[in-house]
Design a protein around this nucleic acid. Structure first.
Lengths: 352, 352
DNA sequence: TTGAAAGCGTTACCAG
DNA sequence: CTGGTAACGCTTTCAA
């Protein structure tokens, strides 16, 4: 209950312990040479005073804030959450702490957030994707700290990269559908003004259907990213109205796929007998719908871990800033019930 | 490409603009009295040098870091994400920035995180729930900054509260099931050593079933929180093995409810004809399963907004620290298909 | 409206 | 192993 109007600082601890502030500073940090007795003395004094270390002052003087700034599009996304968990685990034990920001899939907001980040003097910056505003790119490249772009393979990376080609994942999926025998395939995604990665998946879809000689114009854009289940359902309604012959629909995410699939089933379609559906992201969810949903696993957590490794390396071997990391993740197709019918290719995968 | 080995500071900008650093400091902040011409001059100089403001130094001197520290149990949870979004929106436009940490539903980890937080000198601290380690409570009360406990109604709050009674939500749900005619009701939750809010829901379940004269011993604890879909499914398997007569199952979350329900359906049970299922949290998901899932809406986003208001008030009216906020949210029952059968009460709700 | 000086709390650096 | 001194980059405070 008692409130000390001024919080104690190192010099207060020093006075109580009968040593200098420098000794306090050292005693409170692990791995410094201080007499064991002295250290214990200092610890007790600090404890007694309720001393709280001030990172601001420390960071100012030592030029090390311990911040790793991370920008993701949305906090409400199991994939990015997994990536963050992977990153957090790697950083555990190091003095590095994550400073998180989210952009709502908006490049302008990203620029604002990067600006906020920079004034906090992070020791590394992690951004999602390779599409930034001109200003943002400039801020990042001039920032003097390692930058990691993740979840994508930018054509001209700013610095380090841990990602995969979003377009290629569509190729993977379209080919799977083709091999299963589907020919009339549609795509459901969000509004085409945002979400570079979603657009890449759409682009990949168009490319691959074209190259297989299929119609590539069955495209629905519904809602600003991230596409919700509700929007996935609405998109499916529109799609079936306009292209009632559709045999399979690729959705930009598992979330939209669930909405789309539920819409189909509630409208009396059988999945996959009447229409096949695929998602993206391998959310837990996609395994607990009925039927289960064919999807793409992008090793979201692994991305975070690799980003963490990259950062730890960069901050260990300071000076050697020229060594760029570029890690390409290989997304995996997860075949499930929602595409399990119309087998005409080689035997295998899930059959009914 | 050109890397300036030292980043410019205010004094550099000042020199280039031909003014003092104080003028630069003022010119770069809105709402300060600086000659328009001078301000423009300074802005140009800053732009030309690529000057980046240093919050560390600013915060050290002014004793205002602009951080609001927020601790949540898990980042991979749509409810907490909504709360964060609500909070973020409220804080938008203010100079306040969120510093996020997550505890994995572990009170010891919470203590660590609060420790990390404190050294960053946040201007307010938000924690989830009212259950903390002794040390943690002490740290928070002595912290000299406003503390908000959310998502719960602690018996002896540290400071401010925005939450609801988790036990009461169970009462609400049990009563609903009772009114629908269900009598043999079970509960699925996580391991009972963590997640105070999940335990409160379990406690509420036991209380209410007892007070209605029902059996209150059909309880399954599976997995460390948060309970996954997979664990929900496993729990349901165990439950049905041990209590095959069960008519309805209350799950600690929508996530576990989906797992449980899918398990039932795959095992040949009809929901709700053979068994009713309920969730908690009103995730989007619960409306896109077949059948849709009866759940509890806790106004997660609103909680965040109210927390934001509380913080903004506290930081505006500094000095008047004695005024405690205590806001009780009223969770709402959302009746859906998964409990729509066996109507014996008054007509209404969803009927088949 | 602008400037000079002092100081926020810590740690780098150098002595002992 | 310990201590004194200066400095990190900004803003408070006071004066012009």
């Amino acid at each position: 209950m008692a409130k000390n109007s001024d919080s104690p600082k190192m010099s207060d601890v020093a006075r109580l312990a009968g040593v200098s502030s420098m000794t306090v500073s050292r005693a409170l940090k692990p791995g410094t040479s201080v007499n064991d007795v002295t250290r214990e003395l200092v610890r007790n004094a600090a404890e007694k005073l309720g001393y709280v270390f001030n990172s601001q002052a420390s960071g100012l003087r030592s030029q090390r804030t311990g911040f790793v700034a991370v920008s993701i599009p949305s906090i409400n996304n199991a994939n990015f959450a997994d990536t963050l968990n992977g990153l957090t685990e790697k950083l555990w034990g190091s003095p590095l702490q994550i400073l998180l920001g989210y952009t709502d899939y908006d490049a302008n907001k990203e620029e604002e957030i990067i600006n906020q980040f920079l004034s906090r003097k992070p020791e590394a910056i992690v951004v999602t994707g390779g599409g930034h505003t001109e200003k943002c790119r400039q801020l990042l490249s001039q920032s003097q700290v390692p930058v990691v772009e993740m979840w994508d393979l930018p054509e001209s990376p700013i610095d380090h990269v841990v990602g995969f080609s979003n377009a290629s994942t569509s190729n993977l999926m379209v080919r799977h559908l083709y091999e299963q025998g589907y020919r009339k395939i549609g795509f459901i995604g969000g509004d085409t003004k945002r979400d570079a990665r979603g657009l890449d998946r759409r682009r990949g879809f168009i490319e691959e259907t074209k190259s297989l000689g299929l119609d590539s114009t069955c495209l629905v854009a519904e809602g600003i990213p991230p596409v919700t289940m509700r929007e996935g359902a609405a998109a499916m309604r529109n799609l079936l109205k306009k292209w009632p012959e559709t045999e399979a629909v690729m959705c930009v995410s598992d979330i939209s796929a669930v909405g789309a699939m539920t819409e189909c089933i509630r409208s009396g379609y059988r999945v996959p007998e009447d229409i096949a559906i695929t998602g993206f992201g391998n959310y837990d969810l996609a395994e607990f719908t009925i039927p289960t949903i064919t999807t793409i696993d992008v090793s979201a957590k692994e991305i975070g871990e690799l980003v963490g490794n990259t950062i730890l390396q960069q901050l260990e071997f300071q000076g050697d800033i020229s060594a760029k990391t570029s890690i390409e993740i290989k997304p995996k197709l997860i075949t499930r019930e929602s595409t399990a019918v119309k087998l005409i290719g080689p035997a295998g995968t899930l059959s009914e």
